[in-house]
Design a protein around this nucleic acid. Structure first.
Lengths: 250, 250
DNA sequence: AAACAGTGTTCACTATATGTGAACGAATTA
DNA sequence: TAATTCGTTCACATATAGTGAACACTGTTT
């Protein structure tokens, strides 16, 4: 089936421009960005505005995302089974470690932190949650990828690899052997791959059928993480083992 | 101008069904709810799914909101000028009072809490943020309505009034005189109107032109709020006065 | 003060996308 | 095994959407 609704696809394309782009756009700018006629852009924007998906600044006439999307995004989070299931575990882990913790899930060929708790300490890593990023990028997402079928490895590594830091893995064979390492030891610990001076510890949640679509991760400043790696890792593994059992994994 | 894009309007209508309705929908259910043909509903859902705005459970075949909406909703919050401007003030107020605090804004004829901090105390009021509600409903939103032009009063009171508790104001003249009271004293304190046993204290943020589109509110269990009302109110008023000054109000 | 160069916005028309409603296969229930 | 109910597919008649030029406005430049 390939008969999608054209104008709905275009509507989604337009909204997505706002995710990684500017927070405000003019009609002409969007027209250039999307290669649509000004008339088409304007008609799309005013339709979306009438629905609360877009708002227009009365002074500057520029458009930005509307509050109905805030409602929808909040509903996604509150309806999510992984989020409601994991909340108390995240709190427990945050309490114990005083570091930032998060729940990572896979959505198609991307990863997203769908829930998080930031460390209460003055020096802390603030997790940039609710945003899509590549599966190979962080310890939490690499754990998910490692335990996914090989087709997923291919899909995730198909697009050009982004290096987030100097120490990011960029070579395909390097990434693949890293994934094999994760698969064999059952967890991931990495430093400086997504953010310099930051260490992440991540473990997978196994589902009833043995597949993995979610992971729990602990992220903090490397110098504070390193002395505690063994303690935090065993606490994390114990927790994810228990969580896996509860969702039916044997 | 009335030539909106029909299928985009319908796409928005479909997505909004998920906000207040079930978290999962089948094609037939949505077809009945929206009075569209099954074919049309299916085509819309599969288009939105291909864009990540909707996801389908492979087992049950039921549809729910997709993670791209989580990304968009998060962007709305992070791009919002009121949210970034108010964050430190909310923290300050939360620190002082140990009660839940929030930032309320008006969007057309609705109110939304666009940011919040929940009380750290074991007994606390958890603010249901990021959801639209009527302007007449809570102390925070009534403050905004009170200082809005009278056309807004008419618009907000046009729809049938929802009573959230036994003590909610439902009579139109009762609401209007309440708004006049708020306008004359410059703040709102109310109990049991949205939630039984809960008291809210709210004050407006005035913009450069004297208009009001945002307010700060303090919400907590009535028995803990009452002994502190005077202290909290003066702290709140001092804060909103300072905030109003900073956005250009004289 | 006048011309200009930007906006966002509007419009009528033709090519194009879209909703219909019946038919399909796959589950699930009787 | 028959009946029901689900999501999904399809071809065609009909309603919709993109075009690109013209518009009204704003602020700037001459």
């Amino acid at each position: 089936m390939e008969h999608y609704l054209t104008s709905v696809q275009k509507c989604c394309t337009l909204l997505k421009v706002f995710i990684n782009g500017n927070k405000e756009w003019g009609v002409t700018d969007l027209s250039k960005e999307l290669q649509w006629s000004k008339g088409a852009v304007h008609k799309m924007l005013s339709t979306l505005e009438s629905e609360g998906f877009i708002k227009q600044n009365p002074q500057t006439k520029l458009y930005s995302l509307g509050y109905t999307l805030l409602e929808l995004g909040n509903k996604v989070k509150h309806d999510d089974d992984w989020v409601s299931f994991s909340r108390s575990y995240l709190q427990q882990l945050a309490e114990l470690t005083k570091e930032s913790v998060c729940l990572c899930i896979r959505d198609h060929r991307d990863a997203i932190y769908v829930d998080k708790l930031d460390s209460p300490l003055p020096i802390r890593f603030i997790i940039d949650a609710y945003r899509r990023f590549p599966l190979y990028a962080t310890s939490a997402s690499r754990v998910i990828l490692a335990f996914s079928p090989e087709e997923m490895w291919d899909a995730a590594l198909e697009e050009p690899i982004t290096a987030f830091t100097e120490q990011s893995l960029t070579d395909l064979s390097e990434i693949r052997s890293r994934l094999e390492l994760i698969r064999s030891r059952g967890y991931e610990i990495s430093s400086n791959m997504r953010n310099v001076g930051v260490t992440g510890i991540a473990a997978p949640i196994y589902q009833a059928d043995g597949s993995v679509n979610a992971s729990i991760s602990l992220i903090g400043p490397s110098d504070r993480m390193e002395p505690n790696v063994d303690r935090w890792l065993s606490a994390l593994l114990q927790m994810t083992k228990e969580m896996s059992r509860l969702v039916g994994y044997k």
